[in-house]
Design a binder for these strands. Structure first.
Lengths: 211, 211, 211, 211
DNA sequence: CATGAATGAGAATTCATTCAT
DNA sequence: GATGAATGAATTCTCATTCAT
């Protein structure tokens, strides 16, 4: 957690610092992050950084939390507003909200993605926890689908959640990379459709009789 | 490529060096690799390393090639020996061969996995190429399935290959990590079954009528 | 150019660092200079050096500039204060001023001399430029002498400037070396007389009728 | 001195090694010489070098001696064949012979030149000795001129020798550098004329009444 | 609370020289 | 006498973190 010093800073300055950190970690994983670059970008003194945070890691996890919160502002409405939507529509909306988030805050999304493939060795636990959390969340949604009868009763829920999670992650990463290249162009619709396809494919499988 | 000096070394010593490099890069990505650790583990002089290789990168890609070759010894028989097996059985066998490889050479497998999530920013091209190659390979197999009628004719082959590749990658990583923990225990069967499940799930989808 | 960090240092410390660098490069050419020796002599941390300068070359050229400026404080008064002195008296005074400079700042003079015979292969351009500049300067002075009639009209000005420059350089180097040995002794007068002789010799030639 | 091992080598191989060393030291001063480059060029094993010579310095001075001998084959005839030529014609011929040598053996000449401006710090004595030898030689010639009346009796012989030596050295260096650039072109005559000019200038001085 | 200089361990890489075969 | 692998000290440069002002 940042030191009190940080929170006493005027909002504008706090924001500038946070943005520098996000910028850094949307390009480099934690282990490659550089205090030098961050303070330069934030235009603060080298020492100030250490008045605000214990160290690089402290700053990283603090900002990562903010990213998570931001992402939740996209997802929460969906979860809360539609309690008895078919589960599969829920997934569709969630994925689409993810795309929206990535398009509107590409740096935050990139930081999140970078985090999830963080050196599987450093801070393994934290990452693993986060991953498990996400998969469990998917799992719970699917469970609901089983209860409502939308989903075959003999489905391996864990595996389904696993596949959904990792496929969505991989597709999101690809999308972020493409957005970076074709910056500005409006590929939002395109990506949403792609996520729809992916969901459909996983729902109905590769081998399909009628659909 | 290693310098001639390296190939002039007695086999045993070459092997020791190679193993040190593999050990290093099954734990650290290229950018975090340390010559110091490698030479210590291989028990050679600091300078010797530079008699063998141009630099760390040289060593890395050389060994990565060896890993690829080794993996191919597991996959090649399957591809060659069973030309007209149903495509889906082929996948099943390939996945199982992958598990076998991971179980028998966990470090090699880890190095390969680490490579594929290599800092998405450094050497992007090489990694991306490799990934695309793998996905294209899956895609071609699926195409065959379409031709033989095993697979629905309106399937988005690219997306299917994408989902298969990344799901398999993610599961393999999890498996490798677990093997590390429960080292020695015979979880091979267990993992094979898990891969079977995954394949089945992706084949038939989450929402299944009869199966 | 040094980084701002360097100029923020207290004068005394800046001076100490500069002196260490001069000391280094009055003994070794750029290519042989050692950061290790400099930081030891200046009694600063290894890393501090790199806070002040980009690298050894940066430090070298910065200090070389200072040396040049210092030398100009000896030469400038002569050039400006005596516009219509006979050219040959000008040379005499310039040479003597050079001796004065060498006697009062032997290390600076040595550094300058070392620079001018810098590995004729590295940084050739910079050195060559400097040499040409000096010769051209001599040439222009001689030209004036031709115009005032002091100098025979058929003289090869370029060759004369060339001979003057290199003879003076060589003599200066010898003088500096001797000062080093007989350190402290007052050889100043002696050297000035020697430079006078040299000038006279080149003026009137080896084969002289009357003089 | 080289070890006996070296002299037992077949002539052709000896020659190849010598040429590699000359090539090296016509480009780099002793302190920058690299055994690695030499053995590569000579196509011998790293260890062989140390069977032939004690170390780099040993090789250097041995080959330097050969260079001196070679140069003497150009100068000796002049000294011996014309005992009562006017001293100044002798100088002219010597300088011209020097140019000839430089044109026909540019690498040897470059090595010699590089030697004479060798890090004034390393092996100072050897270089100084050589320089003094050359100047003394010039001095003795001039002395003869004094005795025959060619040269004014009040001339400062030491200074004259000094100026002659260093001017000639400097001009030779410039000539060698130009030959390197305009390789192949026949600039020999041009340079000889230039040396003639220089000699004349130093003989008759900058300020000349009639000439 | 801001500042930015100081620190020094640690990284990669080079290379003359030795020595076992 | 030839070979070339082994060695390790020495080099430059980087950077997170501390600390005095």
């Amino acid at each position: 957690m940042p030191r009190p010093t940080f929170f006493n800073l005027p909002q504008a300055k706090q924001q500038k610092v946070i943005e520098s950190i996000i910028s850094e970690f949307s390009q480099y994983p934690l282990s490659q992050g550089s205090v030098a670059r961050i303070v330069k970008k934030a235009d603060i003194a080298r020492g100030s950084f250490y008045q605000y945070f214990d160290d690089l890691e402290d700053a990283y996890y603090y900002v990562l939390g903010l990213v998570g919160e931001k992402k939740m502002t996209y997802l929460r409405p969906i979860l809360h507003a539609s309690p008895d939507l078919p589960v599969m529509d829920l997934f569709k909306r969630l994925f689409r909200a993810g795309v929206q988030f990535g398009a509107e805050h590409p740096q935050l999304a990139k930081m999140g993605a970078l985090f999830l493939q963080e050196e599987k060795r450093v801070r393994q636990e934290v990452v693993a926890e986060e991953e498990e959390g996400a998969i469990r969340f998917y799992h719970d949604l699917l469970m609901k689908g089983k209860q409502t009868g939308e989903i075959a009763s003999d489905l391996d829920l864990h595996m389904a959640a696993f596949v959904l999670f990792h496929s969505q992650m991989a597709l999101m990463e690809r999308a972020l990379k493409q957005m970076e290249w074709e910056e500005g162009s409006d590929v939002l619709q395109e990506f949403m459709t792609e996520f729809d396809h992916m969901l459909e494919l996983i729902l109905y499988g590769i081998i399909r009789r009628e659909s």
